[in-house]
């Protein structure tokens, strides 16, 4: 499936350095599949300990069904847990727009087909103002044109070229590509001439 264009309504979760512990607190990592993670996205900032709502923006009626998450700098820092992007995906979000991203998180998102696009602060402020004034506005993330279109405005976005290419050619999950060269892999293994703990030297 090509992810050249993604469209949906937006929701803005404000803050720099939003870490993966906040995106999915550690206690929800006690699982052997990712299937049930969606409802626990941002659990501790959304719910009191007794489960009542804290009135977080993700639970605001006007943002129900939003598909594009907008945030600020260094989004997804901290733990490498893939549970974070998995929770984002299972919640129903399809893409993340932020000022910058932590690398492991961004890589995990890419493999799952969740584009992480970078947007300058001034543009992000305009976009979030659009989203807050008009929660029903459709945001279109266009990875071919590297732009976001929302309420007739066009904002430039950036993304690492190899990542963009992977989305455009539907190779964001690299497994098939990695599997296609067993001989090359074997050559490198033999050239290295060691295995940890087994075949020394």
């Amino acid at each position: 499936m090509s992810l050249a264009k993604i469209a949906g309504r937006g929701v803005y979760v404000q803050g720099n350095d939003i870490d993966t512990d906040r995106i999915i607190p550690a206690r929800f990592l006690k699982c052997v599949t990712f299937d049930e993670l969606g409802p626990s996205l941002f659990a501790d900032v959304r719910f009191e300990e007794d489960g009542t709502s804290k009135g977080h923006v993700l639970d605001a009626p006007q943002h129900q069904g939003a598909e594009i998450l907008i945030s600020d700098d260094n989004f997804g820092c901290g733990s490498s847990r893939e549970h974070a992007p998995q929770a984002i995906a299972k919640f129903g979000l399809k893409a993340v727009v932020a000022g910058s991203f932590a690398e492991i998180f961004q890589g995990n998102c890419t493999t799952l087909g969740i584009p992480c696009v970078v947007m300058e602060k001034d543009d992000r402020e305009k976009l979030t103002a659009d989203v807050e004034q008009n929660p029903d506005a459709e945001i279109i993330i266009d990875l071919e044109g590297m732009q976001i279109i929302c309420v007739n405005a066009i904002y430039p976005i950036t993304m690492k070229e190899s990542t963009r290419e992977a989305f455009l050619t539907s190779t964001y999950d690299p497994l098939n590509d990695l599997l296609s060269s067993p001989k090359d892999i074997q050559q490198v293994a033999e050239k290295l001439g060691y295995s940890p703990g087994v075949d020394h030297g």
């Binding site: 070229e161 050619t169 293994a189 060691y194």
Partner: peptide, 29 residues
């Protein structure tokens, strides 16, 4: 350079991992 397998079509590189460690939280899946 020692662990590089090849460049992928996306422009990323395929890199050999000499050692892989796993634990109970992120690996069973």
């Amino acid at each position: 350079d020692d662990h590089l397998v090849r460049q992928l079509d996306s422009g990323q590189y395929q890199v050999f991992m000499a050692l892989h460690l796993i634990h109970e939280v992120t690996s069973p899946q």
